[in-house]
Simulated assay, not measured.
Amino acid sequence: MLQPLTPPKAAAAAAGGGQDIAAAPPPRFWDARLARWLVRPLARTAVRPNHITTLRLALGLGAAWYAAGTGWWAQAAGAWLFALSNVIDHADGELARMTGRTSRAGHLYDIAVDCLVHVVFLAALGVGQRDVFGTAAAAVLGAVAGVCVGFIFLVRLLMTERAGKAGAPLPSLGGFDAEDVLYVLPFVALAHGLGVFLVLAAAGSAPSLVVTLVAWARLRRTHPAGPDSAPPGSPATLPTDRAGRSAPGRHTVEDMP
């Protein structure tokens, strides 16, 4: 029986040519460490990084579906699914590094899914809080939070394209970064606090977008466009093969099958 062709890097990884995870230092952030532990058994299976990204998308959309409900149990379920999807968000990159399957297309797919999940979830949360704030006010809160977060994702992508990850750092402390605050959302839901969370998200996302835009404008002045000005390791300077594969980053995964 004919066997399907295997990309050279994937074949090398299957034979031990991928990153030596046992010898590699652990990820900096705790959720990435958990993600690595979860996907380690999948390294020698047919599961590919983009399968993990698609699972994250399904969980995120499921979270939005439940968050749009009016019952407390539904919104709590949505919050827990959203937190789980955020853990899974790190798993695709960890699996890609284990198996040697990385690409720019997978990187962009991961970012698009990440952005979509956050935007749709926040908008759905606004719909779910209509009994608390009224239909119109709740919809505005969800829309403001969702749209601002979507633009923040877009601007941060432009920043990393221009200057690499160092161009768009997130505040971090003790193995947690700023995004990890979302892991408290399930407990906020259990305490009937999603309405307060929605108000804070809408109120905080707009100033955060302004800060991000200011940082982007400053970065454009300090890092002019062009491959010659890009720092080593940024997308503009990563070597690629004919299939478009490049060196792995935190969220780089393989091409869609």
Rank of each mutant, 00 (worst) to 15 (best):
A201C: 09
M1V: 14
N50Q: 13
L122P: 08
G69E: 05
R40V: 02
P169G: 07
R245W: 05
A236L: 14
A67N: 10
S229C: 05
L157Q: 12
A202Q: 05
H51R: 07
R218K: 15
G195N: 05
T160M: 07
G195C: 08
L5W: 13
V140I: 14
A166C: 00
V211G: 02
A83E: 09
G146K: 01
M256L: 11
V149Q: 14
L213A: 14
D131R: 11
A145H: 01
A105T: 12
L59K: 08
N50R: 12
L42D: 09
V132K: 04
P49A: 01
H51N: 14
P26S: 04
V127H: 10
A105S: 11
A67C: 07
H107G: 12
L34D: 09
R220Q: 14
I111W: 08
I111H: 15
F187C: 10
K165P: 04
S208W: 02
G175I: 03
L173R: 15
R130W: 03
L182V: 15
N86M: 13
R162C: 03
G128T: 11
A201W: 00
A201G: 01
G93N: 03
F121M: 09
P257D: 10
F29A: 06
A74C: 01
L157W: 10
A138M: 03
L158A: 14
P26G: 00
A58D: 00
A13N: 09
E254D: 15
M159Q: 15
P227V: 12
K9I: 00
P49V: 03
A236G: 06
F176H: 13
S205G: 07
V87E: 02
A76M: 14
G18C: 07
L154T: 13
L61F: 15
A67Q: 10
R40H: 13
S229E: 12
D241T: 11
V196P: 00
S85D: 07
P235R: 11
Y66I: 03
R40G: 02
M159T: 09
W65A: 14
V39R: 08
G78W: 04
P207F: 02
L108Q: 15
F153R: 13
V188K: 06
A123W: 13
A203S: 04
A202E: 02
A138E: 02
H107A: 14
R44A: 13
G93Q: 03
A189T: 12
L5Y: 11
H107N: 11
H118A: 07
P239S: 08
F82R: 06
A83D: 11
A67S: 12
A35I: 08
G71S: 15
L122G: 04
R130D: 12
A143F: 09
G134N: 06
L84D: 01
L154D: 04
V196K: 00
D92L: 09
G174Q: 04
A189K: 15
